[in-house]
Structures are given as structure tokens and as C-alpha cells.
Amino acid sequence: MIEVKPLHYFIAAYEEGSITAAALRCFISQPSITHAIKSLESSLGVILFERSKQGIRPTIEGEKLYKLATDLLLQNQQLEAAFTPNSKVELHLYIQPDINIEQYSDIIETIKHSAPSINLSIVDSVEQSQLAIIDEQLLSSKFQFKRLNQESYKLVVRRDHALANNNKVRLESFKDLEFIERPYCTNRKVFERLTNEKNITITYKGKAIHDLQIQGLVKLGLGVAVIPGSYIQQDHDLKYISIVLDTPITRSIVLAYRKLPNVLIKTIEAIQHRSMALDKVKSSD
């Protein structure tokens, strides 16, 4: 008889394409994932994965087991829920650290209220998650997603800075500025490429670990910074200036998900429709 837990580990390995990523997702050691897969292979008398330096790839038997295993685990979950009315379904949520979650708090509330049986818990990495609010550039092909927002970047300076009277600046204005570095920026290389093309050398005065800290350092007069639009706040000491570029640099914030409980599918679709409606309102302004 096949146990349920090894099937969970097998599914994680299948979806991640990596033993390491599967272990991270399941909060266990790599040998435990390997042991579970070998145990299944021994019980079924088949090889489930082809192994290489690039990772693992499912065999025909692995593809077959994946479909059967996902159906079985879903039925198992539904069976438990039917006879345990107050039971909670654990859902792991990842929120990218440099995304201002306050901008998307209504999404979290919508999920919580539309599916009381869901227990949301925060995880440290996207590999461990079933649901994520994340920059699309950082998302693996293992996820589906719905777009929430398209964010542009702005230059933030103190109100007494020489550029504070400007509503727009070009990259050439960066030449004589001292910046607080944002090392976690997903578009950092794009900015660097554009400044290099214009022979602009960026001077950094230090690094920040999150965008609220960046704005605090700017307020103290320790430099200027480039931050995404969602972190713009009402602050009389700071000025946010649009950056004029031939090709605007933006990041796409998405609600990403793997296989979800049925109760959440319609909620995700509703969130997408609402985001599209908001986009139309913004474009008409």
C-alpha cells in the first residue's frame, strides 16, 4: 500500500524539477525527498525520474503517477473536509520582500473572507509557496499567475535638493548624484545598462535592505535613490520625480499560484477581473 506522504514529496520534486527545491518547499532534508522517491520506485517497480546535472526529469511512468497522485491527494483532501467541517486547509503564501504589501492588503483580505477554510501562513521563499505576490521576472514556469499591477520607478530626493523643483529628470541628471544602493532591485541591471550606454558612472554612498529604510536615509541627506511606485508615500520632506526614458522601466507585480483548493479558484479569477478594471480606470485618468 502506498502512503500519502511520499506522494506529496514526489509531487514537489516533479513540479520543481529539483530535489533541492522540493526539499526546500516541503521543509525537509534532501535525503528525505530522495528516499521517498526511491521508495515509490521500489513499490511500483518503475523509474520515476531521469537524473542529470541539470536536475531531474520525469519518465513516462513519472508523468502517469503525477496525474494519478494529484487526483488522489485532492480527493483525500476533499474527503477529510467533508467529515471535518471545521478543518483548515494550509496555504503557504510568499510575499517578495521589496513589494509594499500594504498596496495589496485587500487581496489578502479577499482570500481570507472568501475562503474561511483556508489558513494562510507566510513562508521564506517562493519555492515553499502555493501562492505568491511577486515580480513576474522572478517567477518560475512552475507557476500560473494573474497580473495585479505595473509599477514604474521614480527618483526620490529631499525637498531641499537641487532637483526637488523638477517633476521629471533624465538619466543625464544622475551624473553628479550620490545614491543609496538598492541591491535587491530586479531591474538593477537594466538601469546599469542604460547608464553605461550614456557613460554615466553611478556613485553609491551605501546600501539599504528595504525601501522604507532607503527613504529614511534619503530624508537624512545621505543620498538619493530610485524606488518603485508602490513605496511612494505622503512625506513633506521628500520629493518623488519621474524618470524620463526612451523605453520606460517597469516591473509587473503578479499573484502567482500552483494547484489551489477549488474554493480559491473563483477568488483568484475575481481578483484578476478587478485588477483589469482598475487598469482601465488608471488609463482613463
Rank of each mutant, 00 (worst) to 15 (best):
residue 185 C to S: 15
residue 186 T to E: 06
residue 186 T to W: 01
residue 187 N to Q: 14
residue 187 N to Y: 09
residue 190 V to K: 15
residue 190 V to P: 00
residue 192 E to V: 06
residue 193 R to W: 10
residue 193 R to I: 07
residue 193 R to C: 01
residue 194 L to I: 09
residue 195 T to Y: 08
residue 196 N to G: 04
residue 196 N to R: 15
residue 196 N to C: 01
residue 196 N to L: 07
residue 196 N to A: 13
residue 197 E to I: 04
residue 198 K to Y: 10
residue 198 K to V: 06
residue 199 N to Y: 12
residue 200 I to S: 07
residue 201 T to A: 09
residue 203 T to C: 05
residue 205 K to G: 12
residue 205 K to V: 07
residue 206 G to R: 11
residue 206 G to F: 12
residue 207 K to H: 13
residue 208 A to W: 06
residue 208 A to F: 05
residue 209 I to Q: 13
residue 209 I to H: 15
residue 210 H to C: 02
residue 212 L to T: 13
residue 212 L to N: 14
residue 213 Q to K: 09
residue 214 I to S: 10
residue 214 I to D: 07
residue 214 I to Y: 10
residue 216 G to D: 12
residue 216 G to C: 00
residue 218 V to Q: 08
residue 219 K to L: 01
residue 219 K to W: 07
residue 220 L to F: 09
residue 220 L to H: 15
residue 220 L to M: 12
residue 221 G to Y: 00
residue 221 G to Q: 01
residue 222 L to Y: 10
residue 222 L to M: 11
residue 222 L to D: 05
residue 223 G to N: 04
residue 223 G to Y: 00
residue 223 G to I: 00
residue 224 V to N: 04
residue 225 A to Y: 08
residue 225 A to D: 09
residue 227 I to F: 06
residue 227 I to N: 03
residue 228 P to Y: 10
residue 228 P to V: 05
residue 230 S to M: 07
residue 230 S to D: 15
residue 230 S to I: 02
residue 231 Y to G: 00
residue 231 Y to L: 00
residue 232 I to M: 10
residue 232 I to H: 11
residue 232 I to E: 15
residue 232 I to P: 03
residue 233 Q to S: 14
residue 233 Q to W: 02
residue 235 D to E: 11
residue 235 D to K: 06
residue 236 H to E: 12
residue 236 H to G: 01
residue 236 H to A: 10
residue 237 D to R: 12
residue 238 L to Q: 09
residue 238 L to W: 03
residue 238 L to V: 07
residue 238 L to P: 07
residue 238 L to C: 05
residue 239 K to C: 08
residue 240 Y to D: 01
residue 240 Y to N: 03
residue 240 Y to E: 02
residue 241 I to S: 04
residue 241 I to T: 09
residue 244 V to L: 07
residue 245 L to E: 14
residue 245 L to C: 02
residue 246 D to C: 01
residue 247 T to V: 11
residue 247 T to K: 13
residue 247 T to F: 06
residue 248 P to C: 03
residue 248 P to Q: 08
residue 249 I to L: 06
residue 249 I to M: 06
residue 249 I to P: 04
residue 251 R to M: 05
